[in-house]
């Protein structure tokens, strides 16, 4: 469905985006002058301490929030609201509890008014991709957290989104389930070549998954570093070079915290 014109256009461009929230009488700046370009097919992780605005940035890309200033565009078209070209996977799943697994996955295709036969085909394909055929007629309340998150991933993929936005998607899962879902996500990414922006606060997760790690810092939220991860895939978390990259990124995260606290102390003095 990608025509020549689309292929020539730049994918995701974020220029000088700021976001200020009004909380009571106070204005809180969540993002200041964020610039970020992401190419089609990239796997990018946004990492940072809580309050660094990484989730806000993701919600702006999704179109759930509007930037206070700056420009954001996909294929050089300004993003003005939620759209089916971008799919969000929430930490708390946000599945429709009254729909079965199958109905949740087919929700997007059904909105497009496609032929019944085609909808069934797409749904079966993505049920298979996340390995939930046996649970197709279950309701979300009858699933474990890992299964719910698989449904959420299948639901946005079935909608043929081009940009998968994931907001700490595995944060609420136990370690074993998280590991297997990380592997499944990488397989899905390799197979579909969907562009992924993945918010996390785990350095290991970011290095394991992404082509680029974008380090964000708080107060106000901004991009501190943009680190390409050149490690060959599949990656091994216990490898020496993996650990070097992990240490490097951890340092970038914590050095800011140290600088920040020094600045705070000076301010107090």
């Amino acid at each position: 469905m990608v025509n020549d014109d689309k292929a020539r256009r730049r994918f995701l461009e974020i220029q000088e985006v700021t976001k200020t929230f009004q909380i009571g009488a106070d204005q809180v700046q969540a993002l200041r002058a964020v610039n970020l370009n992401i190419d089609k097919g990239e796997f990018v992780c946004l990492i940072g301490a809580s309050g660094c605005g990484k989730s806000t940035l993701l919600r702006i890309i999704a179109g759930f929030e509007k930037p206070s200033s700056g420009r954001i565009s996909l294929y050089e078209n300004a993003i003005t609201g939620p759209g089916s070209d971008r799919g969000m996977v929430f930490q708390d799943y946000a599945l429709f509890p009254w729909m079965t697994v199958r109905e949740n996955i087919s929700f997007g295709p059904r909105q497009k008014g496609l032929a019944r036969k085609y909808i069934d085909e797409i749904t079966a394909e993505y049920l298979n991709m996340v390995g939930l055929e046996k649970f197709a007629d279950r309701y979300p309340l009858q699933l474990s957290g890992g299964m719910k998150q698989r449904v959420a991933i299948a639901r946005v993929l079935a909608n043929e989104c081009e940009l998968l936005l994931m907001d700490e998607p595995f944060g609420a899962l136990d370690a074993l389930t998280r590991e297997s879902l990380q592997q499944e996500l990488l397989e899905i990414w390799a197979r579909t070549r969907v562009t992924v922006i993945f918010v996390t606060h785990s350095v290991e997760e970011a290095v394991l998954l992404s082509d680029r790690v974008v380090v964000m810092t708080a107060g106000p939220g901004r991009i501190e570093a943009d680190v390409p991860i050149a490690l060959a895939r599949p990656r091994e978390v216990s490898a020496i070079d993996f650990n070097q990259v992990r240490r490097d990124i951890t340092q970038r995260l914590t050095s800011h915290v140290r600088h920040g606290s020094v600045r705070d102390l000076k301010a107090v003095a």
Binding site: A62, S84, M88, A94
Partner: peptide
């Protein structure tokens, strides 16, 4: 949960369909 409405809108559901289906 307001996220359900966000999820529906990103999947292309809006207007009167949003009322009926979500």
């Amino acid at each position: 949960d307001p996220r359900l409405f966000e999820a529906a809108s990103m999947l292309g559901c809006d207007g009167s369909r949003m009322f009926r289906q979500v």
